[in-house]
Amino acid sequence: MELQQYYPRIIASAICLIVYLLTKNILSKLIKKFSKKADIKGSRTLVIIRLFNILLGFLLVLSLFAIWGVDKENFYITLTSVFAVIGVAMFAQWSLLSNVTAGVLLFFTFPFKIGDFIRIQDKDFPIEAQILDIKAFYTLLMTKEGEHISYPNNLLLQKGIVILKNEDNDYNSSL
Rank of each mutant, 00 (worst) to 15 (best):
N154T: 05
L55E: 00
G146I: 00
F65T: 07
Y138E: 13
E73K: 08
T139C: 11
F65Q: 03
G42H: 10
L60N: 05
L55F: 14
L62C: 12
I26S: 04
Q5F: 11
I163C: 06
L132E: 09
R44E: 15
S174C: 00
S63M: 14
Q158I: 03
R44K: 15
S35W: 02
A12W: 06
I11Y: 12
Q4D: 05
N154H: 13
F108Y: 14
T23G: 08
G87M: 06
R9C: 02
G103C: 06
I149A: 03
L156M: 13
D124V: 04
I67H: 02
Q130N: 05
L46V: 02
I40Y: 00
I11L: 12
Q4M: 11
L140I: 12
D124Y: 13
I54Y: 09
G69F: 09
K159C: 06
Q130L: 02
Q93W: 10
I120E: 03
W94K: 10
S173D: 04
R50Y: 12
G146D: 00
K33D: 03
K24G: 07
Y76T: 07
D39A: 13
S98W: 12
V85L: 14
V100N: 07
N172S: 09
F91C: 08
K37E: 15
A89C: 07
S95R: 13
H148G: 01
Q121T: 07
L64P: 03
N153T: 10
E73I: 08
R9V: 01
D116P: 00
I31R: 02
F112P: 05
F117S: 03
I10P: 06
F112E: 01
P8E: 00
Q158M: 12
T143H: 06
W94Y: 14
D122T: 04
S95P: 00
N74Y: 13
V82N: 01
R119L: 13
K113C: 07
V61Q: 03
L21Y: 09
L141D: 06
F108N: 09
T109H: 07
R44L: 09
T101C: 05
L156G: 12
R50S: 11
I149F: 07
V70T: 11
A129D: 09
I11G: 01
V19D: 00
N53P: 02
T23E: 01
K41V: 08
